[in-house]
């Protein structure tokens, strides 16, 4: 049986891990390679690194980081943040990343999804979507959640599926940072029309939240950051807890 995936997310700035609350206010949460190794030992099923560096020097640091990670990590990992061309993707995959996550750049130029899928395969294209509910409708936001688009999340998921995305990383901006649990309403709504694997993101605060998201939605992965970085939940304890609740877990 296919197992549900627990995926720690490490936000990277200039080669260090940071995590914002509701996308604002960053705290230092350590060295990414050391954190990544700790998570692999604890039983993480995959890792996601989101680079929020804006400078060119920072991007070069990122490639070096991916090379280091590729040497140390023997489970799949995804790199996202600031990827806007096939060349960016090639550099990251060559450095050893397994998948890339694209967000704003895909909204600005949807063909990018197709270009990456054609050249490197659907399996490496994760489309990350930041979604927020406005007057009862879920809308896509870009630029780290700062800019609202006119795209309805449900339509955007259909579009990127047709363009060749392999996976959707779906972050609820309404729930992100609140620790009140995953946005099961939104996730159910989107997963009804989505044939791709969905990673649920935003809102994880306690172990029960993971049981809830896996039993009430079709998400095959659940992502969280600060609760893991600040040791509020240990991944090995979480997986034991999920097993007791009859969730298929590695």
């Amino acid at each position: 049986m296919l197992k549900k995936r627990i995926i720690p997310c490490l936000d990277i700035k200039d080669g260090r891990t940071v995590k914002g609350i509701n996308f604002i206010g960053l705290r230092d949460a350590g060295d990414p390679v050391e954190l990544a190794k700790k998570y692999v030992n604890d039983g993480a099923d995959e890792l996601v690194f989101l680079d929020i560096t804006a400078t060119l020097e920072g991007r070069k640091t990122l490639i070096e980081l991916v090379e280091k990670l590729s040497l140390e990590i023997n489970i799949p990992f995804t790199i996202g943040g600031g990827i806007s061309s096939v060349d960016d993707v090639e550099a990251l995959l060559k450095a050893g990343a397994d998948k890339v996550s694209i967000n704003s750049a895909a909204v600005r130029r949807p063909e990018l999804v197709q270009e990456i899928a054609q050249q490197f395969g659907n399996q490496c294209v994760v489309v990350a979507i930041d979604t927020k509910n406005i007057d009862g409708e879920d809308y896509v936001f870009i630029n780290g959640g700062k800019i609202k688009t006119e795209l309805k999340t449900i339509d955007w998921v259909k579009t990127v599926t047709e363009l060749g995305a392999g996976e959707i990383l779906l972050t609820s901006m309404d729930f992100d940072g609140t620790k009140n649990g995953f946005d099961t309403r939104m996730l159910k709504n989107i997963s009804q029309i989505c044939q791709l694997p969905i990673i649920a993101s935003g809102g994880a605060g306690k172990m029960e939240d993971f049981t809830e998201v896996f039993s009430e939605t079709t998400a095959t992965g659940a992502l969280a950051a600060s609760i893991f970085h600040f040791n509020e939940i240990k991944i090995s304890d979480l997986k034991e807890n999920l097993k007791q609740n009859k969730i298929a877990i590695r």
Partner: peptide, 27 residues
């Protein structure tokens, strides 16, 4: 069902020398 088949899964009816030291519960 959801495609691609993406993630960790276990094997059944294993019979190859590659699997020495590997158990049916491994993913």
């Amino acid at each position: 069902d959801i495609v691609p088949h993406m993630g960790w899964n276990n094997l059944i009816k294993t019979k190859t020398s590659l699997f020495e030291g590997v158990s049916d519960e491994d993913n």
